[in-house]
């Protein structure tokens, strides 16, 4: 038996909106730790890892580890029917072939339940080793989204370079080139407006903008995004999900051969 009650149901809507264009079908894994997902995009270039810790739910019952295979586009359709302020409860029996989403309005005057068919999905997990990063950039998530969107109108790839000067996002295309530099800046009114650059070594990596733009669908989840870079390793683009977890996108770099 699985029963997860999330008071901030709107968070789950935002999580699905950030995943559904990247991944078609995925297994949601439920354990005592929390509600999690690991999935690759269809071309196996990017990987997404979601964790919503059990403590973040108002009620979390998971009698035994359970894997729920869902079509994310269909799940997003169901969750769109919930109000942004609704309380969302996810329910499933141990051997169930469906999952129930229950939506309660904040003042309890409307209660809805939606039943969605589950799928059998063959998926293997990848072990993600702990890595020491050469550079970690924390910046406003809306700014990062704006940069990715702007650069993708000019080129297909972005070179992200971190030096003492700051973090530089560069692209080139048929019409010309573009460079955007963001400097370390903590002299801001609100902490979420800060750009914090921690650099052990200079690093410069190239990535497909199409994927970066897809990751920025998670922007409504968090005011800040963390971009972790190391030579020849996938970049990690992380958004916090309130105080209860995170969504991490990993993208393999394009390597000169």
């Amino acid at each position: 038996m699985l029963e997860l009650r999330l008071v901030q149901g709107g968070l789950l809507k935002k999580v699905l909106d950030s995943l559904k264009d990247l991944v078609n079908d995925a297994n949601f894994d439920c354990s005592a730790t929390g509600f999690s997902l690991q999935a690759m995009d269809s071309s196996h270039v990017a990987l997404v890892a979601l964790l919503l810790r059990s403590e973040g739910f108002e009620h979390y019952r998971c009698d035994r580890n359970l894997s729920l295979g869902m079509n994310l586009s269909n799940m997003a359709k169901m969750l769109k029917c919930a109000g942004n302020d609704d309380i969302v409860t996810i329910k499933a029996d141990d051997a169930a072939d469906s999952v129930t989403f229950m939506f309660e309005s904040p003042n309890q005057d409307k209660i809805a339940d939606f039943d969605m068919k589950l799928m059998d999905i063959d998926s293997e997990h990848l072990g993600i080793p702990e890595a020491e990063f050469q550079a970690i950039v924390r910046m406003p998530s809306a700014e990062f989204a704006r940069i990715c969107k702007d650069l993708s109108t000019i080129g297909d790839t972005v070179v992200i370079s971190v030096t003492k000067e700051g973090v530089k996002f560069s692209t080139r295309g048929d019409i010309g080139t573009a460079n955007i530099v963001c400097r370390h800046n903590t002299s801001v009114d609100k902490p979420e407006e800060a750009t914090i650059i921690e650099m052990e070594e200079t690093v410069s990596l190239t990535f497909a903008l199409r994927y970066m733009n897809s990751f920025t669908k998670a922007t409504p989840l968090a005011n800040q995004v963390t971009i972790s870079l190391s030579s020849d390793l996938p970049v990690v683009v992380e958004y916090k999900v309130a105080e209860m977890g995170h969504i991490r996108f990993y993208l393999a770099p394009k390597i000169e051969e």
Binding site: V45, A46, L126, P129, Y250, A252, E256, E257
Partner: peptide
């Protein structure tokens, strides 16, 4: 020309 490897090149399956 840059080469795009799959993510599996970096992370092991288990």
């Amino acid at each position: 020309e840059n080469v795009q490897y799959n993510i599996e090149k970096y992370f092991e399956r288990f």
